[in-house]
Structures are given as C-alpha cells and as structure tokens.
Amino acid sequence: MPPGTLERTAPSLFRHGPSPRARLVLYVALALFLMVADARFRITDPLRNAVATALYPLQWLALQPVQFASQGAAYFQELDAARSELDEARRAMAQMTLRASQNEQLLRENAQLRELLALRERLTAPARAAQVLYDAPDAYTRRVVIDQGQLAGVEAGSPVVDARGVLGQVTRVHAALSEVTLLIDRDQTIPVLNVRTGARSVAYGDPTGMQGGGMELRFTPGNADVQEGDLLTTSGIDGVYPPGLPVARVVRVERRADSTFARIWCQPLAQVHGARHVMVLAPVAAVLPERPQPAPAAHQSRVKSTPAAEADAQAAGGRRR
C-alpha cells in the first residue's frame, strides 16, 4: 500500500472530545452570556434587525393567504350587512311614503270636513254627514254608495252635496247603505237658476261630456243670455233641492244658425270623481210646514153660530111643535 494513501488522522472510533455534559454546560453559559450581554449592551439588535429585514418578504408572503381569507370574510360580512341595511332603509322609506300619503289624505279629508261643517252651518234644511264607500258596480250609470241608509233616516230623493256644491240625489235606499245618482248621470235632471241673469232652466246629466262627465242645458233658445263662466244654482222649484246651492258653471256655449236652441255645456262644481265625505239633506217637501186643513161644514156652522141664531133656531123649533 503506498504511504501516501494512509490516513493521517485517527478514525472516529478513536476520537475523544468534550463530553455531552460539558457541552451542555458550555451552551448554557454561552446562552446566559448572550442574554446578559443583550440585556445590558444590546449587542444582538443589529443582528436581529438584519434577520428581520431579510425574513420580511417571506413573512409577508406567508401572511398573504391569511389576510386574503380574513379580508374576504370581512368583505362578505360587510356586503351582507349593507344589503340588510339597504332592505331596512327601503322598508323604512316605503313606510314613510305610506305615512306621507296617509297624512296628505288626512289633510285633504280634514279640509273637506271643515268645508262641510261650514256648509252645514249655512244650510237651513236638516243635514246628515255620510261617507262615500265605493262606486256602484254598473258601467252604464254614474252612482256611488254611501254608508247611511234607512236606519239613519235617509229617504229616497234626498239631495246629496259636498263642500263645493250639489253632488247628486239618493235614488235607492237600503238598511245601512244608499245609492246616490250623480249629476252627470244621463237620467239625472236638476232645475237650475242662472245667478247672473236670474233665468231658470233645467240641467241634464251628460256622462260623455268634458273631463269624464258634465252637464248640459237643453232646450235653451239660441238668443238666451248665457255666457261662459255663469254660475248655476238650484232654483228650489222642484221641491227636492233647497234653493241657492251651487250646481255647475257654464264652460262652453255653442250657437248655430241652423238650430233654434243653443248647446250649453256645464261643469259640475261638486267633486263627482273621488268624493269622500258628503252631506245628505232632507228633501224640501219633507221639511215644509203642513198647511192647515179646512174644517168640516158642520164644524164651521157650529163655529159661526151666534147666541141670536141659537135663539131663532129654538123659536123655530117651538113653532114646529
């Protein structure tokens, strides 16, 4: 065997080094020394900073999945919270809109009731407040149903008015309900008086008139003094409507040379569409005082007899005997 091939160091079996106990003591002493040195002299701060700077990219990459997961969970939680808040805000807005519409409706009803109360003070005929429930289910008539009937003392033929004027007439009475035929119904007529001229005429309902229904003055001579804007009120000659109630206003007058009569269209002053609160009046004929009946002939003869006449009668009776 060549001499150069021989190992110059002893094999590991024959090596002798410090014992494990000595190593433990050495390492403990070194650790204590480093701890004391770091606490007193901060000798490991540069090393710690260098290691932290070197490991920061690795730490950032390692934390990215955790941050992404936490941010994703927070995003979905915030999205659910935003959706719930949006739904709650929409419900609150709907409730506020409903309350606002109800408040507006209440304000309108209060205004109508105040006007009705003022109208009731001006009326001399007995009046009863009523509320319109719904329109009558008949496409060929213009009627509404009110919440007063026979139990409340409503009679057929009673006029119905609102805060603006005459609305119609009660045509059918039930126990707790009544049907009111509006002025714009084709079968409804009402005697009217032109306030400006004092001329009387009769207004007929015209359901196909202006703005979804109106009235027409028929059989009016073409040379009659009627102008646009004239106010028509009840004349009171029919024994149903009290005189002086506002009915309609003339909106159009058409005179033609080939016709003897003029065509006059009127717009009712009452709220024929969408009336809510009304007043039911007693017919004029029902509240008029009854005329005293003439006494019988025998009673009149007894009333007109005098003591002298009685004496003459007794004398005549004696002569007959």
Rank of each mutant, 00 (worst) to 15 (best):
153 G>W: 13
188 Q>M: 14
121 E>P: 01
190 I>F: 01
189 T>D: 07
146 I>H: 02
175 A>M: 14
123 L>K: 09
173 V>A: 10
170 V>E: 03
163 A>D: 09
210 M>P: 05
201 S>W: 12
222 G>D: 09
143 R>W: 08
127 A>P: 02
151 L>I: 15
134 Y>N: 13
164 R>C: 06
200 R>Q: 10
211 Q>K: 11
214 G>L: 10
159 P>A: 15
216 E>R: 14
213 G>R: 10
173 V>T: 07
200 R>N: 04
168 G>V: 05
220 T>R: 12
196 R>G: 03
174 H>M: 14
167 L>K: 04
123 L>T: 11
155 E>C: 05
227 Q>Y: 06
220 T>G: 07
229 G>D: 11
216 E>Q: 14
178 S>R: 08
213 G>W: 06
167 L>S: 02
122 R>L: 15
166 V>W: 04
185 D>R: 04
199 A>H: 13
123 L>S: 11
167 L>M: 08
120 R>P: 03
201 S>F: 14
229 G>N: 09
131 Q>I: 09
196 R>D: 01
176 A>P: 00
190 I>E: 02
165 G>I: 09
136 A>P: 00
226 V>D: 01
131 Q>H: 08
202 V>P: 00
147 D>W: 01
185 D>I: 08
207 P>A: 00
162 D>C: 00
212 G>N: 04
197 T>N: 08
154 V>F: 03
229 G>Q: 09
217 L>F: 05
203 A>Q: 03
124 T>P: 00
219 F>K: 11
140 Y>K: 15
134 Y>P: 02
184 I>W: 04
209 G>C: 10
164 R>G: 00
171 T>Q: 06
184 I>E: 03
205 G>W: 04
160 V>I: 11
148 Q>H: 12
204 Y>N: 11
138 D>K: 12
181 T>N: 09
198 G>M: 12
166 V>N: 10
177 L>Y: 06
199 A>L: 13
164 R>V: 05
154 V>P: 03
184 I>Y: 04
224 A>H: 08
144 V>A: 01
185 D>K: 07
167 L>Q: 02
194 N>T: 13
204 Y>L: 14
138 D>G: 10
161 V>A: 05
151 L>F: 09
168 G>Y: 02
205 G>V: 04
183 L>K: 04
222 G>A: 14
213 G>P: 06
190 I>C: 10
126 P>C: 13
173 V>F: 07
193 L>N: 01
141 T>Q: 14
212 G>Y: 06
195 V>N: 09
211 Q>P: 00
188 Q>C: 14
221 P>Y: 03
132 V>G: 01
212 G>E: 01
206 D>V: 03
178 S>D: 07
157 G>Y: 11
168 G>E: 02
165 G>S: 12
219 F>V: 11
171 T>K: 07
225 D>V: 12
210 M>Y: 14
153 G>R: 15
161 V>K: 05
